[in-house]
Design a protein around this nucleic acid. Structure first.
Lengths: 343, 343
DNA sequence: ATGAAAGCGCTAACAA
DNA sequence: TTGTTAGCGCTTTCAT
């Protein structure tokens, strides 16, 4: 039933050459005479031969697989990233082995162990936190890792993020310039560097203007929790309600807008400005038209792939922390100050 | 620099047993005395040994990897499916190797060849069409495949879909019961079985009531094309505009609603009812509150995994075509007939 | 129950 | 340039 795959030995026999000649023909850096190449290619085509990547991996030590750890596929930012990552890697001859990480801490360690079992050439950890001995294990195994959209201090981490503190500052500047009085913040998961940096940049800039947060709630990067956070924040006398809210990402800003509009009957941005972070597709949909700080997924992915493959291919490449800039996208969910141009 | 991974031979030496004893301890169906197991486990733990899945795959012929071909990650239905698939497979000891397929036809064949190179144990093709000789190659290679959310006639295809014709009928019944006069349909990509079946069920039911489509446009399952389709359909004198539109999936229904509301100033469902298909997360967001036919992702994934793993593990399992039922979810985007209860 | 030995399909020295 | 040979790390007969 199961027809075994064609092997290089069979091709060799048919082409009348040695098995290693076949291998050479299919190995990029190897040499073979034009005649041999011709004979082998013909025989291979006739037999439908293709090299077994796993066997190649065993001897070469390179599986051409990259492990991707990912947690939040319901946040539109991540499918977009996954698609781009997969495409970029595919183009460079690698493929993505996916590992879903529940957000429970211990789970991540298990997942990374499993990844290592597959002898992946490298690991991309998207928005997950790692215990430090875990990164040690990866280093011990010689498997480079880059954190995507999370920074982590400590020794040899590589990471690619956008400049979250700068993004936070930009939102603060927008709110200040628009003359908002009572400014609220809905935080993401407090363990995340992105959350911390965005908030820090935001509040620091407010402080520079002698201002501080009027209200703060935590949404943990979850839609329902963000809606709850909005309810807590707005269940106060009308005069004490924020007139501007910065939400730590778009994924939460969407239910926040929904809640403010449909449960509190507030008009956005008439009565309250809302700003998010990421610029996910839905942020651009007319129903939300959300002002946000764009995280340039394309550039972030390109940097991630470049860095990781350099780490994989050039042994001894030093770890790097890449930070790309993120632009403020002015749309209709936040009051636009005099003289600022809508993007 | 690259510290090589611990091998079973090293564990064997430390435990004072043979290398094959170590293998037996880590091989599910194998036998070893309690004492051996104990010694080996201890040594393995001390050394941090874990079996190399690739080496195991070479000899056992099972890589415990499933290839997933996927095309539309911007449609929220698919990230959801991917997450569930990955989790379900992970739980059963398999992992997902992702291959993005551009929608160009020839590309799919290339992609499947690449998948086969990785010696995956099975393939899940989500919403992509395959040339029939491609499925032959898979069969020749002994790699079972199941089509997800696409049916395809011909010999030995396995597939998991929802009952799309039935779903289409249900939407027709809703529109008929609500007394709609001019009924429009915005089609998906015409090569897709889901598109065809939904439309067929829909128009067949209309025909049974002596009715037919007032307008029809094609959106190809693309957001921008769907918006364009809506514009074409509604750029007519007000009296000729449809008062109800069935859109072949939610991913297109969203821009259709946006276009009708923000470009034509129509109220939904006051002036026009809109119904989609899938029940993606955004369909439930208050800004859309979209009436739709739910494709039960959880059940579809469960069926897919069960079927594929049976195909993988029990040689000679016959191919099957599984069809799960899809429920009509009544929300606020379509007029609800007298006596029907909002879901 | 256990060890020795034979590969899985391939790449990479090493000779010739 | 080519063939021969030795493994990569593991599972699985086959004896013992």
């Amino acid at each position: 039933m199961t027809v075994s795959r064609v092997t290089s030995a069979e091709v060799a026999e048919r082409a009348g050459v040695s098995q290693s000649a076949v291998s050479r023909v299919f190995t990029p850096g190897a040499s073979a005479s034009a005649k041999t190449v011709e004979k082998v290619r013909r025989a291979a085509a006739e037999l439908g031969y293709r090299p077994n990547i796993l066997a190649r991996a065993m001897v070469s030590g390179r599986s051409r697989m990259i492990g991707l750890v990912v947690a939040y596929l319901d946040n539109q930012f991540y499918p977009d990233v996954l698609e781009r990552l997969s495409n970029a890697l595919q183009q460079r001859g690698y493929h993505v082995l996916v590992f879903m990480a529940a957000q429970t801490a211990g789970n991540i360690d298990t997942v990374v162990e499993e990844i290592l079992d597959y002898q992946v050439d490298g690991i991309i950890a998207a928005s997950v936190a790692l215990s430090s001995d875990l990164s040690d294990r990866c280093r011990a195994a010689g498997v480079p890792m880059v954190l995507f959209n999370r920074a982590q201090d400590g020794e040899g981490f590589s990471s690619v993020t956008s400049d979250n503190a700068q993004g936070g500052r930009r939102v603060a500047e927008l709110f200040l310039a628009a003359g908002h009085e009572r400014i609220g913040y809905i935080a993401g998961w407090e363990g995340a560097s992105t959350q911390r940096d965005r908030e820090l940049g935001f509040t620091t800039r407010l402080a520079e203007a002698g201002r501080s947060l009027h209200a703060r709630e935590v949404g943990n990067f979850r839609m329902e929790q963000a809606a709850e956070a909005a309810r807590r924040m707005f269940c106060v006398p009308a005069a004490e309600r924020p007139d501007a809210v910065f939400v730590a990402n778009d994924h939460m800003a969407i239910p926040v807008m929904d809640t403010l509009r449909s449960e509190f009957g507030l008009s956005v941005p008439g009565e309250v400005s809302v700003v998010g972070y990421d610029d996910v597709p839905a942020a651009g949909w007319p129903a939300y038209d959300l002002t946000t700080v764009r995280q340039p997924a394309g550039r972030m992915v390109a940097e991630t792939v470049d860095l990781l493959l350099k780490l994989v291919e050039d042994e001894g490449t030093p770890p790097r922390n890449v930070e790309v800039d993120g632009q403020l996208i002015l749309r209709g969910s936040a009051r636009i100050p005099e003289g600022w141009d809508r993007t």
